[in-house]
Amino acid sequence: MNKVQQKRLWEWLITSPSFTWLCVLFVIPTLIVFIITFKPSDPYGGIGTGWTLDTLKSLGNPNYPSIVWRTVWLSIATTATCILLAVPTGYCMSRLSKTWQQKLLLLVIIPFWTCFLIRIFAWKVLLHPEGPLKHALVGLHLVAPDTSLLYNAGAILLVMVYTYLPFAILPIYAAAEKFDFRLIEAARDLGAHQLRAFFSIFLPGIRRGLLTAILVVFIPALGSYVIPDIVGGPHSEMIGNKIAQRTFVDRNLPHASGLSAFLTLAVLAPLLAVLVLQKRKGIEEDPLIEEDA
């Protein structure tokens, strides 16, 4: 066996296990979602034989546009709030000493590792009508005693920001840490105002981190299901809730697939947009995400 063949064999040996696994349990299932959209359901909650367009017609359900709209605006609002908080946080972290950076990074990573059901539950307790936050707000006369802090879109937004903020801070901090802050000093020396230097030097400098942060918040936010399920009310459902409802309550897998196929397409759109954007800027050589966990 010559060197080239040996190298090929070696590559095949260490590539095929993960490659095969992900093809079988990630790519094929994603394709199946699209196929089952065109299958009828059977009375036992399984998948029937033959083909049908019933699911596609069911997507015309008049309730759906409002649910889709709510999903999109909640995801956009979550992303915007996360970025607004993550940029100053990441900026501040990157300007501190190395020991402080390490400590703060740990504090940001801990929520990322913590079971997110527990973090949602913690908010449910805080926002509860008998909970401490309500007492405090009523005590300060900021809200009326009969206001509900739970079971509305505001609660969903708050908990989504809470859940996804670490995902936004990590890539922004990673980019800010590599940023050469002498550039800002140079801009200031040349007479740029502090804000001007921040917006036209710092933000473009960390644009890759920003883009990653937007993606890793916006895409998972579109698929939120547990957060609206626990802190949302009957009038603040998102697409994820409908998928779960079709799967577990109505046991209509083809309808659930149809909604999932729709969500998959919705998720692919921003992902492809970013890829195209990066290709055009010619910065495709380094990975899209710098994994910082």
Partner: peptide, 22 residues
Amino acid sequence: LIYTPLVVPEILMGMSLLLLFV
């Protein structure tokens, strides 16, 4: 292949695996 599962919403992964198993 390695990177995409990191961003795909969990509900889509759960749903597609359920359909595969069914």
